[in-house]
Design a protein around this nucleic acid. Structure first.
Lengths: 143, 143
DNA sequence: CTTGACTCTATAGTAACTATAGACACTACC
DNA sequence: GGTAGTGTCTATAGTTACTATAGAGTCAAG
């Protein structure tokens, strides 16, 4: 099949498929006489795998490692489990960071006193003086 | 004060300060005879404001709007509150998305059967056949 | 034979910075 | 006065994971 069909079947964009090829996630495919890329079912499987990893929030660098493992499977898959564990920990940290950020934003939101004559907006004042962050001390909100 | 001192006082890197200037978040400062940028307390306040917005996860485009408001304050701050509300909603959506992703990852993690002779790693198999995503149907995990 | 859809390559753009190279300015010390 | 070290200057390129664009070639149908 040609690249367009592979794209349709996998749900991956044509340009992205070519990008993955250039990045070494997909093998360089055969070509037709007219220089069109030619793919087989193996390629679709591999691309599905990639898409699935991507849906799980994995970056190409991680996917690359998993593909390598897929290409030369070993008995010991400990590090695969470790990779997923690390990924879960990372997601956890991001959630915690966002929860914290949300608290700050809600506190910030609460400083708005509505439309008052002659007064400066409470949110702007909080952004100026960091009063909405007082309870956290000086450490950073994010990350 | 020179750019290094402003960087130290604000906690922002020197290169980032220059970047903010180029992006129009900071005004073009005066220069010394030797062509060094010269900043005053107003600049530090403005940069603090920017840093504070950044810590709240706001992007330069949003910060730019807030700075404009700061420069020409109006009585009605409704849209400032709306901006913060939209920001909170966005953070909420990201948290929900990550929670969902986490569930998937934990399910994926659970498919690992440990080190077994001659068998393919359960995680790899799940990544191949999407079995860990069966319960969600075909819709995307992320976003 | 021409129209339209598909494909090709190469390059540049995105966000929000970060890193690098090579030159100039300034201060301290000998 | 010379020089070593630090700070600053500009301009350009790199980062991540793609996305968009330009301009040309390929192929099937009418």
């Amino acid at each position: 099949m040609k690249i367009g069909e592979l794209a349709k079947k996998s749900g991956c964009k044509v340009v992205t498929i070519r990008y993955y090829e250039k990045e070494g996630l997909l093998p360089t495919p055969e070509r037709t006489e007219g220089n069109y890329r030619l793919y087989g079912p193996k390629d679709l499987e591999r691309l599905d795998f990639i898409m699935h990893c991507r849906e799980h929030g994995m970056r190409p660098s991680e996917i690359r490692k998993l593909l390598l493992f897929r290409d030369t499977p070993q008995r010991d898959c400990t590090w695969v489990a470790n990779l997923v564990d690390a990924h879960i920990a990372d997601v956890d940290a991001r959630i915690a960071s966002l929860e914290h950020l949300k608290k700050h934003l809600e506190r910030l939101r609460g400083t708005c006193g509505g439309e008052r004559e002659g007064e400066v907006c409470g949110i702007m004042r909080s952004l100026d003086d960091r009063s909405c962050c007082a309870s956290c001390g000086r450490q950073s909100i994010l990350r």
